[in-house]
């Protein structure tokens, strides 16, 4: 049987040991019967020209088009209750392309519960943050929550496991 192709989305490409990590992720994909679609190697570099940047982004979009499943790390990133920009964008792209999409995060409590800043009820009885801004109802923004196949509590391996069960169960 042809292996399903997986596209990984998330901030781990920004880690110092990203190349090694993605080798491990490729092996993990293999373990669950998937083939990891590899980023262009230049993506692991810190800098480059604007032209190269655009070319790499176009190559990634093509990878996304070629994949069967996207698995996205949507843990809070550089903010209180928002994931890294790229998985949010790529999950939207995957939704448009009709791909199976899994978001994973270590803590799937709803945004208001995860929010570590100050919260209070406003004059309409709605829970808001210190700037008067209300919270999304679920663990992620509504568009992500309803635009993915599943949100998995845990890590990449947990998400791969769930995707593999679904894939083998014929949900593809």
């Amino acid at each position: 049987m042809k292996k399903a192709k997986v596209y990984l989305s998330g901030p781990d490409r920004l880690k110092k040991n990203a190349r090694e990590l993605f080798e491990q992720y490729a092996a993990l994909c293999e373990k669950y019967g998937f083939e990891l679609l590899r980023y262009p190697d230049e993506l692991f570099e810190a800098s480059g020209s604007r032209e190269d940047n655009e070319r790499i982004a176009r190559q990634r979009l093509q990878l996304l088009k070629n994949c069967d499943i996207i698995i996205a790390d949507t843990a809070d990133f550089r903010s209180y209750v928002e994931p890294y920009n790229e998985p949010a964008f790529e999950l939207g792209a995957a939704f448009a392309l009709g791909k199976k999409a899994y978001a994973y995060m270590p803590d799937t409590r709803v945004c208001a519960e995860r929010y570590s800043g100050t919260k209070h009820l406003n004059d309409k009885g709605i829970l808001v943050d210190e700037n008067g801004i209300s919270f999304e109802p679920g663990p992620l923004n509504l568009m992500l929550e309803y635009g993915v196949t599943a949100i998995v509590q845990g890590n990449l391996e947990d998400a791969l496991k769930k995707a593999s069960e679904d894939w083998q169960g014929g949900e593809q």
């Binding site: 949507t74 550089r78 209180y80 928002e82 890294y84 949010a88 964008f89 943050d129 999304e136 992500l144």
Partner: peptide
């Protein structure tokens, strides 16, 4: 809410 864009906006843009 930090240094990232609104994820719902990005989803729609994607």
């Amino acid at each position: 809410r930090g240094h990232e864009c609104d994820s719902g906006t990005l989803f729609e843009l994607g």
